[in-house]
Amino acid sequence: MNRRKFLSWFGLAWVSFGAATGGALSIVLRFLFPNVVFEPPTSFKAGLPDDYEVGGVDERWKEKFGVWMVRTAEGIYALSTICTHLGCTPNWLTNENKFKCPCHGSGFYKTGINFEGPAPRPLERYRIGLTEDGQILIDKSKKFQQEKGEWNNPESFLVC
């Protein structure tokens, strides 16, 4: 085998090595992105406004969609169940009339306003509206933050 031939084989070896490595890497990169994502739909129908008791915090959508429905004398709003401190799920304590996070002790009023513990800002609210057949429609893709003054937005609150 002469020198020229040896070098060309050498080049071929490098090219195939590079291709194999590149291929393996790209498969690894592909692996980082799941084939199927199990995410619940971002918007859902939450029944009729009269299904909700005035003055109560309703937990029926907490497990499935991560939403508390709160009805006051003025209307209904949909609170996110994600603590604004580190993302745990707080519990609604009926007797104490507050949301309390089990992870670091943050507390929120029924309105979602933070008042104790380390949570730096209020719970978020989701867009709430009515469908044509009179049902409540919650859209989780749009959220309203109190500290940005977004709770004045009519879409954050359902008057009924």
């Binding site: 907490k62 497990e63 499935k64 401190h85 745990c88 799920t89 707080p90 519990n91 992870c103 670091h104």
Partner: peptide, 20 residues
């Protein structure tokens, strides 16, 4: 959707959790 109550970190992170 359910955080155990209390939710505790592994013991070696409880110092961090207390700081939090």
């Amino acid at each position: 959707t359910v955080s155990p109550n209390p939710s505790k970190a592994p013991w070696y992170f409880l110092g961090l959790q207390e700081m939090l």
